[in-house]
Design a protein around this nucleic acid. Sequence first.
DNA 1: TGCGTCATGTAAGGAGTTACATGATTTA
DNA 2: TAAATCATGTAACTCCTTACATGACGCA
Lengths: 178, 178
Amino acid sequence: MSLPHAILTALLEKPSSGLELTRRFDKSIGFFWSATHQQIYRELNRLERDGLIHALPQPPSRGQRKEYEVLAAGRAELTRWVAENQDPKPIRDPLLLRLRAATVVGSGGLADELRRHLGLHRQQLALYEEIERHDFPAEEEADENRLQHHILRAGLSLETFWVEWLTRTLADLPPEGG
Amino acid sequence: MSLPHAILTALLEKPSSGLELTRRFDKSIGFFWSATHQQIYRELNRLERDGLIHALPQPPSRGQRKEYEVLAAGRAELTRWVAENQDPKPIRDPLLLRLRAATVVGSGGLADELRRHLGLHRQQLALYEEIERHDFPAEEEADENRLQHHILRAGLSLETFWVEWLTRTLADLPPEGG
DNA sequence: TGCGTCATGTAAGGAGTTACATGATTTA
DNA sequence: TAAATCATGTAACTCCTTACATGACGCA
């Protein structure tokens, strides 16, 4: 049940409409919890029904911009959720699964796919590095910024892992077939 | 659509019944693609219906062990899937999301949860290290083993990442509240 | 014959994805 | 007034999760 809490977090930072949230989920929070606009609208309705957020006054009709704000109950729920016990999910990665399958049916064509992934992860890594340069330039940081910097560093480390691992695995893959 | 291919891989390694597969998914393949027995039985029925596997002769009745084997079409499908174009999924991690929420509502109670995760990741790392010692002791490896070793190294690296990142983040977290 | 275990399955619901539908506003 | 765009929403489907149901077999 992460999506409602992702939305509460985004709304606490800034009251928004569904479309605005959708756009903000294309970056920032969306880097580690993506969502489509359909999910977001559905979840906004649920959160409002449950009394965790409410729409700011105005529009009765469809196609009209509707802005939401977090209520006290919503903030309380988010606070509770932050410290809740939730076991880490085991790794679930289709690429590792495909490598495993390749040990059985051969790695024909896999090298190209690994190279493609390597390119994509390099891109994402470059993006995170740019964000770090832009948002965390100074040496000394306020406590709140330090936490955000740690989150970004997680993204940087994970992308770095993929780049290194793909490079090594590719170097070891037979040129054709398997 | 990874689960059917995970099952095909497992069945190619060794024809099995649903319950056997469930147990094998608790380790090995399950380390990067977990599945419950309900998923597995449903998927076995679909794979049989689609002509990718078939049940070995015998049991007409419920509660009877039913063993499956991969057909040529199943092997072909798996071979195709291994080299298919599939974009890597963006990171989707509830813990990072909770850290992000903590920058808004405060990190009260989070330190305990991070310590708990640290312990769990250390356990998993130790397990992978044991597997590495047991399954990949020698210096020289056959090509097939090298690929399997790379897969295990991915698990080792990812757990190592979490241990290091959690340690650093914890060291930076204020002792009480936020 | 009753109990535990092996083994396969059903039911219901949560969460995410893809495709499509509809109303309001801007602008050419 | 027609088109493009902004904005919110429906519908259908797949996948995963949790809880429960049922049959067969061994054994005390």
